Amino acid sequence: MAFTPRRSVLYMPGANSRALQKARSLDADVLILDLEDAVAPAQKLQARQQVLEAIAEGGYGHRELVVRVNGFDTPWGRDDIAAFANAPIAALCLPKVESAAEVRAVVQLLQQQQAPAQLRLWAMAETPRGVLSIDEIAGSDPRLAAIVLGTSDLAKDLRVPHTAERLGLLASLGHCVLAARAHGLDVLDGVHLDLDDQPGFERACAQGVELGFDGKTLIHPKQIDAANAAFSPTAEQLARAANIQQAWQQAESEGKGVVLVDGRLVEALHVEEALRLLAIADTLQQRS
Rank of each mutant, 00 (worst) to 15 (best):
V261S: 07
A241W: 12
D141I: 01
V187K: 04
Q111A: 08
I89Q: 07
I89D: 10
R287H: 00
Q50I: 08
L260N: 02
A82G: 08
Q43K: 06
F231T: 06
A230K: 11
P199Y: 11
F3I: 15
D135K: 08
L154G: 01
A105Q: 13
V187F: 05
T283A: 15
A91T: 05
R24K: 14
N16E: 15
G14M: 13
E267R: 02
K216W: 01
Q118C: 06
Q21K: 13
W122M: 14
G58C: 04
P233C: 15
A2W: 03
G14P: 12
Q46F: 13
L284Q: 14
V103G: 02
P88D: 03
G257K: 00
L178M: 12
S253E: 09
L31G: 10
L275V: 08
V261T: 08
G58T: 01
A226K: 06
G190F: 03
G255M: 01
D80H: 02
Q49A: 14
N243D: 12
R48Q: 14
A117T: 10
A171G: 05
D196K: 15
A235W: 07
Q285A: 15
D186C: 14
R287G: 07
I224A: 11
A54C: 02
E136Q: 14
G59N: 06
V160G: 05
V209D: 11
N70G: 10
P13T: 02
I137S: 03
F3V: 15
V160T: 01
V69L: 12
V51W: 03
A179P: 10
H162F: 13
A47Y: 09
H270F: 00
R120L: 06
A241V: 03
D214W: 02
